[in-house]
């Protein structure tokens, strides 16, 4: 009798293993195709003409490639000012908000702070309050202050920091040895100086990851901008996209809308494809630790 090794699979098992492999690939690839399809469809449609985009016969690729949609979109809506407004919100909120969050995280993680846990829980309790429950008073207050149709309602709340970002920084800063800070104190460095010259440089990977995260969040933010901005020239990108879409609910100018969707998604897709490691990792960390 031939001696069979423990690890050598029988023929039946080997066939089964191949079948399983094929099925797994089919599953994974079909989901991938379905998920990528909207982007492909969006891109291809943006090069079609109105008539073809709404035709009742299915054509995947444009019969005739039209590039004029990408020229027109800039003149039909103030698309450029949409981009510019979004960037204004991004830069002011992220620059100041990140600094404020990191500074607070430094105090929580490394300084002698009486009632530390109370303040931390106090701040974090806000994370379970839905925005919808805060929206009306905020809207009325900004309305009374004549700030609707300006970017201030989107900028001001962000200047006070971002609690989930702060929490992430606290976790990260806890890993930095206290000895470094003590040594700096002995050298006579003030707290702000320690923060600026030691903590910030040592947290830069965490900061980069969180900034990318927040940048994406603001770029894609729709609810608050849609509430405050009614004037087209004041709109950020997302409400502008929704506006173009609802003005064309009949489907006319569909390729134009798709061109807008391509342009508004492109920056995020570029950021994601270059920094996907950050996204995937911070996602995994937040879940496993949370």
């Amino acid at each position: 009798m031939k001696k069979q090794y423990l690890n050598e699979p029988s023929p039946a098992k080997r066939v089964w293993s191949i079948v399983a492999k094929v099925l797994i690939y089919v599953f994974l690839i079909s989901i991938a195709l379905i998920l990528v399809f909207p982007y492909v469809w969006m891109l291809l449609t943006s090069f079609k003409d109105d008539y073809e985009a709404m035709s009742l016969t299915l054509t995947l690729f444009p019969k005739k490639w039209i590039f004029s949609n990408y020229e027109e979109i800039w003149s039909i809506v103030p698309f450029l000012s949409g981009v510019w407004n979004t960037i204004k919100v991004e830069v002011s909120v992220i620059a100041i908000g990140t600094f404020v969050s990191a500074l607070a995280a430094f105090a929580f993680a490394k300084l002698h702070l009486p009632a530390r846990n109370f303040w931390l829980l106090f701040l974090m309790s806000g994370m379970m309050v839905p925005y919808a429950a805060l929206m009306m008073p905020q809207y009325r207050a900004f309305y009374e202050l004549k700030m609707t149709d300006t970017l201030l309602p989107l900028i001001l709340p962000g200047l006070f920091g971002n609690i989930s970002m702060m929490f992430f920084f606290i976790q990260y800063m806890k890993g930095i040895p206290n000895a470094i800070i003590e040594a700096a104190k002995i050298d006579g460095a003030g707290y702000m100086r320690i923060f600026l010259t030691i903590m910030l440089p040592m947290t830069k990977t965490a900061i980069a990851a969180q900034v990318i995260f927040w940048f994406t969040g603001i770029w894609n933010d729709y609810f608050a901008p849609a509430i405050y901005l009614k004037d087209q020239t004041k709109m950020t990108l997302q409400p502008m996209m929704a506006f173009i879409n609802s003005n064309n609910s009949g489907g006319t100018n569909l390729p134009l809308i798709m061109a807008g969707a391509v342009l508004s998604s492109l920056p995020m897709l570029i950021i994601y494809s270059t920094c996907q490691k950050f996204f995937v990792e911070s996602m995994a960390i937040s879940g496993v630790k949370g």
């Binding site: 894609n220 969707a261 995020m268 994601y272």
Partner: peptide, 27 residues
Amino acid sequence: QVLYYIPVVSSAVAMNIVWRYIFNNEF
């Protein structure tokens, strides 16, 4: 993993517009 995560970083507005077009009653 990277591919499946793309919709999460995409704008809900742009994606909803495209999906609406994909599900359109007529065309």
